[in-house]
Design a protein around this nucleic acid. Structure first.
Lengths: 195, 195
DNA sequence: GTGAAGTTTGTGAACATTCACTAACTTTTA
DNA sequence: TAAAAGTTAGTGAATGTTCACAAACTTCAC
């Protein structure tokens, strides 16, 4: 929504915030470090954002918008549910391997505690994924590509849980292993399991 | 290991720490709040622990020990892999529904960032679960109870991911919904999927 | 038994540091 | 020349931690 109204400088700031986030985590994301990374003073931050919280909110809002668009395109690019499923996660892995800082932002519960607004922004990101996954799973179930022995909701829960744990492990490993390769394995395993 | 060497007072302190953790999250777990909950001064804390970090480490070490024992008992109480699988998670849900603060302690990545020692303590807790799950899955695969189309490792990943996401949602919901009931549904869904 | 010595568990005050944020002033830019 | 973007220098509040000290209890010597 408000991701469009961002100035170049604001974009740079949330990029830096992301860089810090993936490097030192939430506890490292301080106004001091952010200013340091931006190579200007702390107070200069407040020329561009009203508060630190707003910076994080903007980052999450931008991420939500971007993810929504990307997932939409990924789904549209394919015809069958299985291909769409693969395309969705392929797109996700691709995105996160290029923007690993968003992994911390979106899947970190430490951030969750900061404020009500941030908490809700994270929920919205989860909802976006759900939104794109649900119709895909449902038509897949109708066509017999996926099991209908299990509720679509629960299927999505399992899929999203598997994905989240991958991101968690990847982050614990300091983003060292190849998330695309490792990720595709798990997605393939999920597909095998779901059919 | 060192969970045995704890004094009663130390036990009380980590209990209070847990209470705070589940009520106000990591950011609420300050020496001030902890002392407040203990109804004594902040400095008294340092009569029992060398640092705040050591308090958290002790809590996690205690949890690891406790979980190891509980999971071992759960597995031993049953004979077939499927029953063992169910017993394991039933035990987990039971435990967490009584000790919801451990959910925050064990599944919060915010805590992860605090120190190397804490990070490793969390990894050890994950390893404990893995240790109990692996032989169970493997014999289940040999006996034909579970699919062998998928690697045991990946199967465990999917199971643990599903479990973690449940805990995450439960915590986001402020521990309101019935984790035992909701949890059993997911476990049943997993069993359906895995056979 | 009684007093000296030592331990445990607490207190309140201070500590150095970090945090997000602000006011007043100066420089850059269009 | 006026707005936008930056600086310097500060704020109060919160953080974890250490300090000297004291009350209550146990241990031990005479």
């Amino acid at each position: 929504m408000q991701a469009f109204k961002m100035s170049k400088r604001q974009q740079e700031i949330i990029d830096c915030a992301g860089k810090i986030l993936s490097k030192s985590g939430i506890s490292g994301l301080t106004t001091k470090n952010l200013a340091l990374e931006m190579k200007f003073s702390e107070s200069a931050l407040y020329r561009h954002f009203k508060s630190k919280g707003k910076i994080i909110e903007s980052m999450l809002a931008y991420m939500e918008h971007d993810m929504d668009q990307r997932l939409g395109e990924a789904v549209q690019s394919k015809d069958t549910p299985i291909e769409q499923f693969q395309a969705m996660f392929s797109s996700q892995f691709d995105f996160f391997s290029k923007n690993s800082h968003f992994v911390v932002a979106a899947f970190s519960d430490g951030l969750m505690e900061e404020s009500r607004a941030i908490n809700q922004a994270i929920k919205k990101i989860m909802a976006v994924k759900y939104k794109h996954l649900m119709p895909l799973i449902q038509t897949g179930q109708k066509q017999g590509d996926f099991t209908d022995k299990i509720d679509a909701k629960q299927l999505i829960h399992i899929v999203m849980g598997t994905f989240r744990l991958m991101m968690f492990k990847w982050r614990m490993d300091d983003f060292k292993f190849d998330i695309k390769k490792e990720g595709d394995k798990h997605i393939q395993a999920l597909l095998t399991l779901m059919s």
